[in-house]
Design a protein around this nucleic acid. Structure first.
Lengths: 144, 144
DNA sequence: CGCCCAGGTGATACTAAGTATCAATTTAGC
DNA sequence: GCTAAATTGATACTTAGTATCACCTGGGCG
């Protein structure tokens, strides 16, 4: 089966596949786009039976750590989450108009960054890049 | 005089140079490194006369908008601020051991990013890059 | 199958980081 | 110095996240 399915990743890392977690994953898998912690808490509270706030945050942290969910920050420093669509290194193109998040699989930083940091004797461990602008749809809407 | 002095930038943008703002700028100019909102609020509250919490946040927002202060995020998603040391486009090398923040004036993203985004028909408005790792001092300390 | 217990849950309470409101005060130009 | 507009500070509220702790349950074991 799909070893990248959240349920399997959870188990592979020695976590239990509890009922609240499964239901939370189900909620997330249906999520259309970016969401905030509060939105997820609200959806979880509305579920039947409801999932507690603490569990939502704990599970969110777990999914974040396992790379199943990613934190996204928009141009205005707004925070949010998205369900990860790829497991490898990538970045995000965040639309500042509609909030949509696209993946940018090719990293425009690698290589160049290494040289720059080496000159400074800075030992790079990782980096985070968020690109913001207008997605194709919003550019068109803007032109009208 | 120095047109990049916070006081002058404030005035140049039509803001008033009030006493609380001046004192807050004075506090910031002495700040050794990265700070959190809470730390600044505490320092402002200890000042004589104290500066109110709301004013601290409003002023912080203003200084952020004017580029006098910058938001910095570490590897662990920790948030913080630093007083900007340069006014042009740059990024940050954040030490995940000591928290020190260095400026990276050469942008390793420009150019490459434009091509990549163009292929995707994404209209780039800006980007944010944080690099984390170990600063020169912490690399040495680590080797011992 | 049923026991057992570590890992997980949910209620509650707490902290940090902001935002909103509004009456009282101050600034800067006239 | 006067006045309008900007700013302040107190207070209350919101969102995000952590801490605690008694209770519950998933799943390995006999």
């Amino acid at each position: 089966m799909n070893s990248r399915a959240p349920e399997n990743v959870l188990i592979a890392h020695g976590h239990r596949l509890t009922e609240p977690r499964q239901r939370l994953i189900a909620i997330l898998s249906q999520w259309p786009s970016r969401f905030s912690a509060g939105e997820l808490v609200k959806a979880a509270r509305k579920a039947e039976p409801p999932i507690g706030r603490a569990t939502v945050f704990r599970t969110l942290g777990l999914l974040l750590e396992l790379g199943i969910v990613e934190r996204v920050r928009g141009a205005d420093d707004s925070e949010g989450y998205v369900v990860a669509r790829r497991g490898d290194h990538h970045h995000h193109l965040v639309c500042s108009s509609c909030g949509r998040v696209e993946d940018l699989p090719l990293c425009p930083v690698e290589g160049r960054l290494k040289e720059l940091a080496a000159e400074r004797r800075f030992q790079v461990q990782g980096h985070n890049l968020e690109v913001y602008g207008l997605c194709e749809g919003c550019v068109k809407a803007d032109e009208k």
